[in-house]
Write a protein that binds this DNA or RNA. Sequence first.
DNA 1: GTTAATGCAAAAACTTTGCAAACCT
DNA 2: AGGTTTGCAAAGTTTTTGCATTAAC
Lengths: 148, 148
Amino acid sequence: MTADQSHHRAELSLGDWQAQLRAKGYRLTPQRELVLKVVQQLGHATPDEVLAAVREESQAVNQSTVYRTLELLEELGLVRHAHLTDRAPTYHSTTNPTHAHLVCRECGRVSELPADALDPLTGLLKTDHGFEPDLGHLTIFGHCAGCA
Amino acid sequence: MTADQSHHRAELSLGDWQAQLRAKGYRLTPQRELVLKVVQQLGHATPDEVLAAVREESQAVNQSTVYRTLELLEELGLVRHAHLTDRAPTYHSTTNPTHAHLVCRECGRVSELPADALDPLTGLLKTDHGFEPDLGHLTIFGHCAGCA
DNA sequence: GTTAATGCAAAAACTTTGCAAACCT
DNA sequence: AGGTTTGCAAAGTTTTTGCATTAAC
């Protein structure tokens, strides 16, 4: 197994993230824990949905804090965002392996495509264009089997 | 040559579009001609940039009209949009063959990837997931050769 | 003359910012 | 205590909408 094979795993183990936070001079707050928790629970969620979920969790958290926290969590590699619609971005936890998204324009269904499945694409882009794709951000629109 | 090989060409020949417009009950207006012209000239442009360019062309066109016109032109298959940043979409003419976009996060450079180059991906998605991707809307973020 | 398209202005959707108060370490 | 984070409210950015007027057919 080459070192390169590790590129599909989550970037931080869960136990580490609080230490990582502090190592960068950041502080651990209830808001940050909560936002991370709801993103993990919701799967794919817009900032707006994260806000709503956080508020149902019985604590009031401000809108700005949600935006600022999502940005921070993304910097730490704990969450990622993708554009599943032409509107607001959706965030998801990185505890699942890196994946691209397939979105059906007809039924709106979103499915996850493991990064492994895209290895041929990665190879092609690297070889022919010297380009290193960020598959975790990739969203492919089209029509799914049911809506063909 | 199979019929399928034609899927990379522009959807409408330039001579036809005015007829297509009328066939759907739409009307040919100077604004629509102008917006289409500047999109063709600009290459990739946000609605805002289209508006600015249109206004330099010595005619005043309203913001709303630009949005409504881009939507219409896209419905007719004369333009397409892609998301080259996390902000506004960019529109481009379909007189060029269908292509995906490669965007470098470091230097911001955008390059076009012919749909042909993605045939392996298309095949894989179709075979393994029954999914028909819309490559003209696809944007792949990552790092280019120079910024590796 | 009809009906579609435009301009305008207001609102909607989404995100960011400045600053004082509150909280983490 | 000291510096980071939050809440709040206001403003910024981008897009949409309703309706009277204008223009295409």
